[in-house]
Amino acid sequence: MRYHTRKIVKPGDLNPNNTLFGGRLLEWIDEEAALYAVIQLESNRVVTKYMSEINFVSSALQGDIVEIGMDVVKFGRSSLVLKCEVRNKLTRKTIIQVDNITMVYLDENGKPAPHGKTKIEYVRDRLALN
């Protein structure tokens, strides 16, 4: 699992129990999945198609720093399937796990289309080729 983004839990991110609101965390995950897919597929024409069962393992409190990890499960013809783990940066305690986030590449008409990718590519490797 590669951790790409860190967020600090602020007062506006809390639920009535004074822990991180699950909806805010899902928003962060969806945004991170979209960014990951855009970078991998080299196109901003990517949408979230599916998110599997979400497993809240522990909570986060105001002031906690959480980090969002993404990894590729598989490359489909027009999709990219990711898995996600969010954990507390300092304690490494898992907060949430999502086993399947399916992102779909769209053509100019908004229809699923082949993206032509088959493996993870890193930006540093793309830059080295130019």
Rank of each mutant, 00 (worst) to 15 (best):
C84S: 04
T48Q: 10
N17S: 05
E32Y: 04
V98S: 02
A34H: 01
I95N: 00
K117I: 12
T91N: 03
N55V: 11
N88P: 02
I120K: 06
V9R: 02
I39W: 13
R92G: 01
G116I: 07
N17D: 06
R45F: 04
V72L: 02
T19C: 01
K111Y: 12
S52N: 12
T5R: 12
V46M: 10
D125W: 02
L41D: 08
L14N: 03
S59P: 00
I29G: 03
L129N: 15
D30I: 01
L127I: 08
K117Y: 14
E108S: 08
P11R: 09
I8Y: 06
G63F: 02
M103P: 01
E27F: 13
V38D: 07
H4T: 14
L127C: 05
N109Q: 07
P114R: 09
P114A: 14
I96Y: 00
K117G: 07
D125G: 08
T118M: 07
V46I: 10
R126P: 03
E85T: 04
L41S: 05
K119N: 12
N100F: 09
T5W: 15
Y36S: 12
R92S: 13
I54A: 11
V57M: 09
V38M: 12
A113W: 10
N109A: 13
D99V: 07
V86Y: 05
H4S: 13
R126W: 12
L26F: 07
V72R: 02
Q62M: 15
V46D: 03
E32M: 09
Q40H: 03
R126E: 14
V81W: 01
D71R: 11
G69L: 06
N17V: 10
Q40P: 04
I39C: 13
I120H: 03
L82I: 09
Y122T: 04
K74P: 04
V73K: 14
R45C: 04
N18W: 05
A60Q: 04
E85C: 00
S43Q: 08
T5I: 15
R126Q: 14
D13K: 01
R24W: 12
R2W: 10
V73C: 09
V73F: 00
L25W: 13
I54D: 00
I65C: 04
Q62V: 06
N17K: 02
L26C: 06
K117L: 05
G110K: 01
R2D: 14
V81I: 11
L82C: 14
G76E: 11
E108W: 02
V38A: 12
L26R: 07
I101M: 06
S52I: 07
I8Q: 15
K74A: 05
R124A: 03
T48L: 13
N130R: 15
E121R: 07
G22L: 05
L80D: 14
Q40R: 13
L35Q: 10
R87S: 04
A37M: 07
M51Y: 00
C84G: 11
D30T: 14
C84Q: 01
D13N: 10
Y122H: 11
T102K: 11
S78C: 03
D30V: 13
E27C: 14
N88H: 03
K89C: 01
V46T: 14
K89P: 00
K7F: 11
E67F: 05
V9L: 06
V47Q: 06
G110S: 02
F75S: 08
D99Q: 10
S58T: 08
P114G: 10
E27N: 12
E53S: 14
L25Y: 09
